[in-house]
Amino acid sequence: MNRTLTKITLIMLLTLLSACVAAPKKDLALDRVRGELDDLKSNPELAGYAPLAVGEAERALRKAEMASGDDLYRSYLVYMADRRIQIARTMAEREQNEQTLDKLEREHSEMLIQASQLEADQARRDAEQARLLVATTTEDAQRAEQEKEQALLNEAESARAAILSAEEADQARRLAESRASEAEYARLEADLASQQVSTLTRQLENLQLRETESGVVVTLGDVLFASGQAQLVEGGRSSLEEVVDLLQTEPNKKIRVEGHTDSRGEAAANLLLSEQRAKAVLEALVSLGVAADRISSLGMGEDFPIDTNESEDGRARNRRVDVILLDN
């Protein structure tokens, strides 16, 4: 009885001990490993990565959980399951890092692409700037050219003004002279008038004549010169003979030869051309017998049209040389 009781007590104690010590110990180790796997699967950063390794860890863990047998074997299985989970975790981390690497590489190339685009933009802007600089320089050159032309124009203008004032002075002197000898003048005038009438009547048929405030103007049309040239065309000289005849009817009157152009082309060039043409006509007139000291020439450029510059006919009329018999 006593021995039986002792036996039963011992068995109960052993059972209790094994329940208290052995079994819970095993569960704790397994629970910890199960917790590790659950943690890996629910980790928001790692979930879904390395599915094969996670599956392998899952199998190893289940095997440990279902194992029956000695403690050594079961703790071996738990250990293996734990390592499998570690392997799965580190592989998941790697896959996640590889994705990050891809993203960083993409960002890297995107930055380089953007940089090259910006560089291209910069180069384009630089080129534009250079082009602008060239344009500005060209503009400066053009402005300088214009200023030069203007200076030339001003020079010609002042030369003309000088001539005009000299003529005015001349006229004043002549007026004084003529007043001093009024009687003689009146008689001379009567003579000249009668001469003039007959001469002009004769010449009017062939020459374009106009009465202006300055005096009688003989207009030589644009047949004397080739386009853009300042030399008389062949035969131009002989056509001037009639003009000379007319001029010689008024030997005491000063003569002004004025060149005019139409408005095509540069004003400065036109002024120069008109000057040269006027001079050519003057020289021709002198060579035909007009006294050199009573004749002067002047380029008027395009500024004194007698007709419109909008039509070819008008322009043809504007291209002319006026020979003016100046009234005293």
Partner: peptide, 19 residues
């Protein structure tokens, strides 16, 4: 299995270093 884990950890560490 520890050697295997060491290999995986080394590879992961290298990837992390490149990142």
């Amino acid at each position: 299995i520890n050697a295997e884990l060491a290999i995986e950890k080394s590879r992961t560490a290298k990837t992390r270093r490149r990142v």
